[in-house]
Simulated assay, not measured.
Amino acid sequence: MVDLNKRSFWHFTFKDILAIISSVAIPIALAIYTSIGSEQQKKQAEKKQQFDFAQSRELRQQTLYDGFLNNIYKLDKDDYLNDTKNPWAFANAYYRAAHRQWDTIRKADVIQFLKEKQLIGRNNCTNGCKTTKLDDIIRLNELNFDKVHLASETGILNMLNLQCVSFEQVSMSNGEFSSVNLNGVSFDGARLDKVKFVDSSLICASFNGVNLSGADFGNSDLAGAHFSNSDMTGAKITEDQIKQAHFYNVTMPNGKKSEATSATTTKKPITQTTTVTKTKMSTTTSSSSTSTTSPITTSTTTQSSSTTSPTTTPSTTTSSSTEATSSSSSSSTEETSWTTASIGQ
């Protein structure tokens, strides 16, 4: 016999089923909608916060940059940047305090400003390696320039002028120089790992004790550049560039130590020694009043190269001629020795 109570429990009408589903589904849908809306609002709030933060940071960077330019102008106006104020302690202290707060863009902009104002790179490098020593008013040593990108606005048409700037003991990892004139620049003691030199000029640049691992010299000019006691492991440099530069105790890209190499050939000097001996003898007799004077000159020439002489002796030549003249009152004899040596190289 079938239990009627159980059967009635499972016998729902379609209307009852819809009512049950509606009572369960609607709260679930509302919960999902609320969750999605809340997540979207949260993302929008984060984006707005990031935008406001970026704007605030950009405003702060620009304020620091403008303030630095204004203060440098005041220092220059009050003659605190002339040579009599060496070592320009206040100007350097102010620059370093501002530098620690700048981003990479402002750091690059300030370097260009300092060069144009002749506060750095004051040496005369227009003739390649020939320089006139002048101390930089603003010192860049021991500062961080990682990921700084210095580039000319017109590319290779007009290179960015950073000649003779001293980047000694700076950190410039992953930095980049694009179409920059770096003639006479000193990178001594710097960290330049993975730095890129693109279409730049490095004539007579100095790299002493520099970490250049992974550096890329692109198609830059290295004529007369000096590399010593440096690490160039994994660096990208062509054979022509290696022939242009000087290397001493450098770990080359292949991991081997370089021998002392020079881009120019030096001619050995020729040593020449000349010895001249002159003897003069005079004899006088009372009976005939005869005076005899005999100067003897001997010239000896010694040279490390070949020597040509008109006599049979290749290195020493002596010749003499004697002329005697007598008169009724006096008689004189003069002997003169001339030595002519032709020396050819």
Score class of each variant (00 low, 15 high):
330 S>W: 10
120 I>S: 06
36 I>S: 02
191 R>W: 08
137 I>K: 06
231 D>M: 05
114 L>H: 04
193 D>C: 02
209 G>I: 05
95 Y>S: 02
301 T>Q: 09
294 S>W: 11
268 K>V: 13
1 M>Q: 06
207 F>G: 06
80 Y>I: 03
239 E>Y: 08
249 N>C: 10
140 L>T: 01
287 S>T: 13
175 G>R: 00
103 D>I: 04
57 R>E: 04
43 K>S: 08
20 I>N: 05
225 A>G: 06
208 N>C: 08
263 A>Q: 10
326 S>I: 13
204 C>G: 01
106 R>P: 03
294 S>N: 15
159 M>K: 15
91 A>T: 12
46 E>D: 03
240 D>C: 01
210 V>M: 05
92 N>S: 04
65 Y>F: 15
13 T>S: 15
216 D>Y: 12
172 M>S: 07
105 I>P: 00
77 K>F: 13
156 I>M: 07
203 I>Y: 04
88 W>F: 12
298 T>P: 03
238 T>H: 06
18 L>I: 10
81 L>Q: 00
226 H>A: 03
92 N>H: 01
114 L>E: 07
195 V>Y: 07
123 N>V: 05
308 T>H: 09
333 T>W: 02
124 N>Q: 07
309 S>A: 10
245 A>P: 04
164 C>R: 05
255 G>L: 08
269 P>M: 15
328 S>V: 14
279 T>M: 13
332 S>A: 12
266 T>S: 13
223 A>V: 13
123 N>W: 08
223 A>K: 08
252 M>V: 08
